[in-house]
């Protein structure tokens, strides 16, 4: 009994220590950003590995999600004779929720885990130590560009996800099921608001981008420098960032749409 309480306390302390380290790290990263802007080459390189390489999975998933929504939405709406509103349904769910959230989840799995593994292995093989001894600060040289690249890539990926999803819905709804072409777009335009929906969706994906890359970069940097430590850190990145995304989504939705 006492032991259990103690282990609980230990875990709690551990958690707060990690949280503290994560905050110190993000402050260091943010401090490094202005210097980083002088070396755009580093950022471009990272946007390539974080953003461009995630493109395929995002675009393909977006198209399929849009198609499924087209199908499901049509089947529901046709009962009410309201299949003209298919565009509204597809667009609103994508722009407000599915775009930012699913993109962030896929991003955590595709890019976040890769970031953690890469940084963790660099730590395990002493590459980060070697950089420090070469008077190169790994936080600024390795972590900051990756963080910035994730933060920039996420909203772009989410926008592409939503846009492709709307096209997927169009393909199924208009192309296959015969919803009126004009109605699909015009109903959508009259119900989707630039500020309420699009802008808020972009804000969401910016927040998710910040949090997911922060977690990924921190887990890698904080990993125990062994193969097991890195593999655990990678798992933690995916689990923690998924939970963080879903939790934050609820909070943001409550703040934005009420």
């Amino acid at each position: 009994m006492i032991n259990q309480i103690q282990s609980l306390g230990h875990k709690g302390l551990d958690f707060f220590q990690r949280l503290g380290r994560a905050h110190i790290l993000i402050v260091d990263i943010l401090k490094g950003l202005p210097v980083l802007l002088l070396r755009p080459g580093l950022i471009v390189q990272q946007i390539f590995s974080v953003g461009v390489l995630s493109l395929i999975i995002i675009v393909v998933s977006g198209f399929f999600v849009g198609m499924v929504m087209g199908l499901q939405g049509y089947n529901t709406l046709v009962d009410f004779g309201a299949e003209e509103s298919l565009g509204v349904m597809v667009a609103l769910s994508l722009v407000r929720e599915l775009g930012p959230v699913v993109t962030a989840l896929l991003f955590a799995g595709r890019a976040g885990s890769a970031l953690t593994a890469e940084i963790g292995l660099m730590k395990a093989t002493e590459q980060l130590s070697a950089m420090e001894m070469m008077a190169v600060d790994p936080v600024q040289r390795v972590l900051a560009p990756r963080f910035l690249a994730g933060f920039i890539s996420m909203p772009l990926l989410a926008a592409m996800f939503s846009a492709v999803g709307v096209l997927g819905g169009f393909f199924v709804g208009v192309g296959l099921l015969g919803v009126d072409d004009g109605a699909y777009w015009s109903q959508m335009q009259s119900s989707v608001d630039i500020y309420d929906d699009i802008y808020n969706g972009v804000i969401k994906s910016l927040v998710f981008g910040f949090v997911v890359t922060w977690i990924a970069v921190f887990e890698g940097y904080d990993a125990i420098p062994t193969s097991e430590g890195v593999s655990r850190a990678t798992t933690r990145t995916v689990v923690h960032s998924s939970l963080a995304v879903l939790g934050l989504d609820f909070i943001l939705t409550a703040l934005m749409f009420n």
């Binding site: 390539f48 953003g51 461009v52 722009v95 772009l156 592409m160 939503s162 989707v192 608001d193 699009i198």
Partner: peptide, 26 residues
């Protein structure tokens, strides 16, 4: 890599533009 990143950013902005002009009431 630079070319790809250029295309990527352009694609993202195009998607945002499409969401703004074609999907929303902007």
């Amino acid at each position: 890599a630079e070319i790809w990143v250029g295309l990527f950013v352009a694609g993202g902005i195009a998607a945002l533009f499409m969401l703004a002009m074609k999907v929303s009431n902007l």
